[in-house]
């Protein structure tokens, strides 16, 4: 039982390389869906496993056993395993709950602040302009959807590049990408090994919007140039302060530009394999946690005297 329930807890650690592979090979929208579904299911399975450990530990306490109407002692591995596992699980669940609640509060506050900022700025169609010396642009989902762009960003791009930027942000809003980002955030708080998957989901959302923008303006190179120029303008405005540690393989922006310059992605068998590997991880995790939970449930029924031994 214990070994089986460890699978959904350990499997997410093996997923990030597979997630990166899938992101590199699948069409961006497909990658967005596959990665998000994987992250959510893996997070749910690991929560279920932790919850089961806690439940088994609780049923070892005489008071809880009485409450659960156990007439026989619950058959489990040694208490030396069950009790520490339950204690660790309680701790892990508490950490998850606190970090999730804090993140949700912060996100809601940031969203409300951005929304009221957009409401005050001048709006033409769906565009809100914020007068600021820092080049920045983002999609602001809501009713109605808005795109927020600073004056510095508008001035760093030419007319055609601005159209690419607008098309990119509109694609985020039309595609409902904020739901995917929220799901990624949720999963990352449930299991620390899913944080790299959150980064992959964010990149998949950007790539999907980039491709939509390239289709809307009918020019991949123009879209790539708009992204690169906006990023470089942002860097110039911020100065050369050392922020993030230099990544070996290049950050998300160069990857996006490179993908646009490389031309449309042709479907390849390796893409199917990458997706299949990820979905297999999800299936294993689901099967292990379901079997583990079912077995614990059966043992509880035995202990309650409702099922034959």
């Amino acid at each position: 039982m214990t070994a089986l329930l460890l699978v959904p807890l350990l499997l997410p650690c093996a997923v990030p390389p597979a997630a990166r592979r899938a992101l590199a090979r699948l069409a961006p929208v497909t990658a967005l869906w596959v990665l998000t579904v994987c992250a959510l299911v893996l997070a749910a399975c690991s929560l279920a496993a932790l919850g089961t450990f806690v439940l088994v530990g609780l049923l070892k306490l005489p008071a809880c056993a009485a409450l659960g109407e156990l007439v026989h002692p619950l058959r489990t591995p040694s208490d030396l395993v069950v009790v520490p596992a339950a204690a660790v699980s309680v701790g892990a669940l508490a950490v998850c709950a606190v970090s999730l609640a804090r993140s949700a509060l912060r996100q809601a506050r940031a969203w409300r602040a951005a929304r009221s900022e957009a409401a005050r700025g001048p709006a033409a169609g769906d565009l809100c302009v914020v007068d600021s010396p820092h080049p920045d642009a983002y999609a602001l989902p809501g009713r109605p959807h808005r795109i927020v762009v600073t004056t510095a960003m508008l001035r760093s791009l030419d007319a055609a590049e601005r159209e690419a930027l607008f098309a990119h942000e509109r694609a985020h809003n039309r595609g409902g990408h904020h739901y995917f980002l929220a799901a990624a955030e949720l999963a990352a708080h449930c299991h620390p090994a899913l944080r790299p998957v959150r980064a992959a989901i964010r990149l998949a959302a950007e790539r999907a919007a980039d491709e939509a923008a390239a289709r809307a303006v009918g020019d991949r190179r123009l879209t790539a140039r708009a992204i690169a120029r906006a990023a470089l303008a942002g860097r110039a405005a911020r100065g050369n302060r050392p922020d993030v540690a230099a990544a070996a393989a290049g950050g998300p922006v160069p990857q996006r530009v490179e993908a646009l310059l490389a031309g449309p992605r042709v479907p390849r068998p390796s893409a199917v394999r990458a997706a299949a590997l990820l979905l297999a991880c999800v299936a294993v995790s689901c099967a292990a946690s379901t079997t583990g939970v079912a077995e614990v449930h059966h043992r509880v029924e035995v202990a309650q005297g409702e099922a034959p031994r």
């Binding site: 993140s103 996100q107 940031a110 969203w111 951005a114 920045d136 642009a137 983002y138 999609a139 602001l140 960003m153 930027l165 990119h168 942000e169 985020h172 990408h177 904020h178 980002l181 929220a182 955030e185 959302a205 950007e206 919007a209 992204i227 906006a230 990023a231 470089l232 942002g234 860097r235 911020r238 050369n240 050392p242 922020d243 993030v244 540690a245 230099a246 990544a247 950050g251 998300p252 922006v253």
Partner: peptide
């Protein structure tokens, strides 16, 4: 985290 930004920060 909550909003899809056009460009993230760049490393050198």
């Amino acid at each position: 985290r909550v909003l899809a930004r056009f460009v993230e920060q760049l490393s050198p």
